[in-house]
Amino acid sequence: MNEDSMARLAVDYDRIRSDLADSFDEEFEVAMDEERLDRMLFGANQPPTGADIERGVYFRELFRLQRELVRLQDWVQAQKLKVVVLFEGRDSAGKGGAIKRITQRLNPRVCRVVALPAPSERERSQWYFQRYVPHLPAGGEMVLFDRSWYNRAGVERVMGFCSETEVEEFFRSVPEFERMLVRSGVVLIKYWFSITDEEQEFRFNMRIHDPLKQWKLSPMDVESRRRWEDYTRAKEAMLERTHIPEAPWWVVEAVDKKKARLNCIRHLLDQIPYGEVEKPLVTLPGRVRHADYERHPVPAEMIVPNRY
């Protein structure tokens, strides 16, 4: 290998390292943001206990598990599997953070997130499950529901948005609805993210004091804090009456966010047997060049100023 080749290899190696590091930056930025919140609120409420998983271990495991999620995604696509994962839990339980880490490296055309708003007047007059059915996966897709049809057993029941008669009908219907999904070939996985009373209070206070996170705290969230015990009773009834062999509930202990994410991802991977998908070798072709091609300069007034 001559000197030019060696120099080019060194440059390529540095660019590869830089590109890989850049792909991990989002996760580091999120972690730094969480540490910023902890520092900002130190003394405003209870500080972190120090029991968090060590950062280096967390990142190594997260990136390893995300690589496995990519393999799972390839398997789901190749085998035309239909996967539905429900994420439920109290406000601030960490559902969104776990979903973000699951989807972070995946193809949004294969793995998508569904987070439906409050139902419209028309939707409230429909069969309860009707608004969720259009979002179910086709073959080769994974759908993650950030809250799901279990809204009826939780927030709708506690906040009085439905009658007890409607709740009872939901409890009668949902096991049959989920059995029907499973019989049709859907892999249905249900997670409940569990946090303590004290932890929710701490996380709500974090949101109140942080201008970057205040948008996350809605009037409904504030009211849910007051009704902690009502939500507890609703949750217990929901788990008792909808924990069926075909679609059992899995409880994620979520006081420690990092451990909760890793445990949830590891468990999700264990629920779907998957293997390596053989892919054809991709060779980058040489670019076609034409003698009459001329690249025109971009007008200066169209260029975003270089301020960094």
Rank of each mutant, 00 (worst) to 15 (best):
D4H: 10
A7Y: 06
A7P: 05
L9R: 14
L9A: 12
A10H: 14
D12Q: 14
F24W: 07
D25P: 03
D25W: 11
E26F: 12
E29N: 11
A31Q: 02
A31P: 00
D33H: 10
R36N: 12
D38A: 05
R39P: 01
L41T: 11
A44R: 07
A44P: 01
A44C: 14
N45I: 05
N45M: 07
N45T: 14
P48H: 11
V57E: 13
Y58W: 14
Y58A: 04
F59C: 06
F59V: 03
R60P: 02
F63V: 09
F63D: 00
F63E: 00
R64D: 12
R64I: 08
L65R: 00
R67K: 09
Q73A: 10
D74G: 12
W75K: 01
W75Y: 07
Q77D: 13
V83L: 08
V83S: 04
V84L: 13
L86W: 02
F87E: 00
D91P: 01
S92G: 06
K95H: 02
G96C: 03
G97P: 11
I99M: 08
R101Y: 09
L106A: 01
P108D: 06
R109K: 06
V113G: 06
V114Y: 03
P117W: 13
A118W: 12
R122S: 05
S125A: 15
Q126P: 11
W127Q: 04
Y128W: 10
F129N: 03
Q130W: 09
Q130S: 08
H135W: 09
G140M: 02
E141L: 12
V143I: 14
V143Q: 02
D146E: 05
Y150Q: 02
Y150S: 04
Y150I: 01
G154H: 03
E156M: 02
V158Q: 00
M159K: 07
M159W: 04
F161Y: 11
E168V: 04
F171I: 07
F171N: 02
F171D: 09
R172Q: 15
R172G: 13
R172N: 11
P175I: 04
E176Q: 06
E178P: 07
E178A: 10
M180K: 01
L181S: 05
V182A: 11
S184G: 15
S184P: 04
I189Q: 04
K190D: 06
W192F: 01
I195S: 06
T196Q: 08
E199P: 03
R203V: 02
N205T: 15
M206I: 08
R207T: 07
I208G: 07
I208A: 13
I208Q: 15
D210F: 10
P211N: 02
P211Q: 10
K213Q: 12
K213C: 13
K216F: 08
S218I: 09
D221E: 03
R226D: 11
R226Q: 08
Y231V: 08
T232S: 09
A234G: 01
L239C: 12
H243K: 04
W249N: 03
W250Q: 13
V252T: 14
A254S: 05
D256Y: 09
K258R: 14
K259C: 00
R261H: 03
L262Y: 01
N263K: 10
C264T: 14
D270H: 08
I272S: 07
V277C: 14
V277T: 00
E278K: 03
L281P: 04
L284N: 05
P285V: 05
A291F: 15
Y293S: 13
R295E: 12
R295F: 12
P297D: 15
V298H: 05
P299M: 06
P305R: 02
R307W: 15
Y308S: 15
